[in-house]
Amino acid sequence: MSRWVTRVVRPVLWAGSALPFLWLVRGAVQGNLGTDPVETIQKVTGLSALSFLLGSLAVTPLRQLTGWNVLNRLRRSLGVTAFAYALLHAFSYFVFDQELSPVGITQDVVKHPWVLAGFSAFLLLIPLAATSTGGMVRRLGGKRWQRLHRLVYVAAVLAVLHFLWLVKRDVTLPLYYIAALAILLAARFIPRRRAEAAAAALAGR
């Protein structure tokens, strides 16, 4: 089982993670990224970052539900992918929207809460991505690593707020992401006993 996850599931996941990026590259090469290519780039990278972030947060509840501890081996891959898309998303903002102007970026971040939320979420993900290697986990030690990586909860909340606040009127899609995040966070408050009982019941079926 564990070998199957590391040898098959993880490579497939890595390949799948690249799909939104490859889709953007193909669109850029063929020149059909839509009427407003920058909007397309920002939408796809933003939604991908958020989706993979929520995916990484789904690992623990799923593991508790199924008892498959091996799922943990996918968590960092999902997290690193989320960061990669967040990086592209932030980069497209820095370059296309702000032309790398520090003054422009600072003013925008200070004045507009939705930018501040997105910018902070991105900053919070940087130390998490930087400590995502096995070596860094060992160097920090499990306990400290875990404590540091609790920042992901703050980043996720800020990221969905960033999405909610940028939408002009139709908040349907951000609300789906908020609901998903709420469920994933709430799942962490289910006492372990009950989660184990649920897992046992599931396994017994």
């Binding site: 009427t35 407003d36 290519p37 920058v38 296309f96 929207d97 032309e99 925008d108 004045k111 507009h112 809460p113 939705w114 930018v115 606040w165 940028l166």
Partner: peptide
Amino acid sequence: VDHPRWSQAKERRVGEFFK
């Protein structure tokens, strides 16, 4: 005069990359 949530100082012509 900004929109309460975003700036109105610049605009992007659809199809262009920069504002």
